[in-house]
């Protein structure tokens, strides 16, 4: 066998190894997608719990421009006088668009780098839903609190 043929054989074997590695990467990418590493799926959503039974459900992995929601469940004890106050860090809200809040807040204002939302509480656990789309990719961090309570931290990885 000539030196050229031997070299061609070696190069082919190297290429096959590269292809096998690449195909393993394709399989890993698809498996990651199925479990929700790119949004949706079992790993895609997360729940964080704060003081007194407050919980925040959100998408851990998401994509730019994808409609999604962040749901805050607040026990009735947090609504003295029928008014429930929730504050979210303003930098987080600045990077989202098409924000819709349901139920609609009765009052809303910005203060000290936070956006305050006031809701009319109707008894029982209130479920507040913030629908939005991320405007840009990257790591989006939010701090979310009910009234003056300690905030819970939420972070989302936003793919381009």
């Amino acid at each position: 066998m000539t030196a050229r043929a031997l070299r061609a054989g070696r190069e082919a074997r190297r290429e096959w190894s590269g292809e096998r590695l690449g195909q393993a990467c394709i399989a890993a990418f698809l498996a990651a997608a199925l479990v929700g590493v790119f949004g949706g799926g079992p790993l895609g959503s997360a729940v964080v719990r704060g003081d007194g039974g407050v919980s925040v459900e959100y998408e851990r992995f998401t994509r730019r421009g994808r409609p999604q929601s962040l749901t805050v469940a607040v026990p009735a004890a947090f609504a003295p006088g029928g008014r429930l106050q929730v504050r979210i860090s303003a930098p987080f809200l600045e990077r989202v668009e098409r924000l819709e809040v349901s139920p609609p807040p009765v009052e809303e204002w910005s203060e000290n780098g936070e956006r305050w939302f006031v809701f009319a509480a109707s008894g029982g656990t209130a479920r507040l839903r913030f629908r939005f789309e991320h405007e840009r990719a990257g790591l989006a961090r939010a701090r979310l609190a009910v009234a003056e309570r300690r905030p819970v931290a939420v972070s989302q990885l936003v793919y381009p």
Binding site: A33, F38, G39, R63, G65, R66, Y159, P160
Partner: peptide
């Protein structure tokens, strides 16, 4: 508006 990640997926 279209996501590059969604297309790649």
């Amino acid at each position: 508006e279209a996501s590059l990640t969604a297309a790649a997926l």
